[in-house]
Computed example of a mutant assay.
Amino acid sequence: MSLAIPWAELAPFLFIGFVAQLVDSALGMAFGLVSNAMLTLLGFPPATAAATTRTVESFTSGVSGLCHVLQRNVDWPLFARLIIPGILGGLAGVWFLSTVDGHITRPVMLVYMAAIGVYLIWRAPRRPQTFRRMRFVGPLGAVGGFLDASAGGGWGPVVTGNLLAQGMTPRMAIGTVNAAEFFITVTVLSAFIGALGLAAFTIAASGLLIGGIVAAPIGAWLTGRIAPKRLLMLVGAILIAISLYGFVALMFEPVPILPRL
Score class of each variant (00 low, 15 high):
S2V: 15
L3T: 13
L10K: 10
L10Q: 01
L10M: 12
A11C: 05
P12K: 01
F15T: 15
F15W: 10
I16P: 06
F18H: 08
V19K: 12
V19R: 01
A20D: 12
Q21D: 13
D24K: 00
A26N: 05
M29L: 15
M29R: 03
A30E: 10
F31K: 06
A37L: 14
A37E: 01
A37N: 08
T40L: 03
A49N: 09
R54G: 09
T55I: 03
V56Y: 07
V56K: 02
E57P: 05
E57H: 15
E57F: 10
F59S: 11
T60W: 00
T60Y: 00
S61R: 02
S61V: 04
G62D: 06
S64W: 02
C67L: 02
C67Q: 03
C67A: 15
H68T: 12
H68Y: 01
V69T: 05
Q71L: 05
L78V: 13
F79D: 11
R81Y: 04
I83Q: 12
I83R: 10
I84N: 11
P85Q: 04
G86I: 08
L88H: 08
G89R: 03
G89D: 09
G90D: 11
L91N: 07
L91H: 11
A92Q: 07
G93H: 02
W95K: 08
L97A: 15
T99P: 01
V100A: 05
G102H: 07
G102P: 11
T105G: 09
P107I: 14
P107S: 14
V108I: 15
L110S: 09
M113L: 15
M113D: 01
A114T: 06
A114N: 07
L120P: 14
I121T: 11
Q129Y: 10
T130H: 10
R132I: 00
R133P: 07
R133N: 10
R135E: 13
F136N: 12
L140D: 02
G141M: 07
G141N: 06
V143P: 06
G144T: 12
G144L: 06
F146H: 03
A149W: 05
G152T: 02
G154F: 02
W155F: 10
W155S: 06
V159M: 08
N162I: 01
L164P: 01
Q166H: 08
Q166I: 08
R171I: 03
R171L: 05
R171S: 08
R171C: 08
I174D: 05
G175N: 09
V177W: 01
V177R: 01
V177H: 07
A179F: 13
T185P: 00
T185A: 14
V186R: 11
S190M: 14
L196V: 04
G197R: 14
F201K: 04
F201I: 08
A205T: 06
L209F: 07
I210C: 03
I210L: 14
G212C: 08
A215T: 13
P217Y: 04
G219P: 12
L222S: 11
L222R: 08
I226F: 04
P228G: 12
M233F: 06
L234D: 00
V235N: 10
S243F: 04
G246N: 03
F247H: 01
F247I: 03
V248K: 06
A249K: 10
A249W: 11
M251R: 14
M251D: 06
F252N: 07
P256I: 03
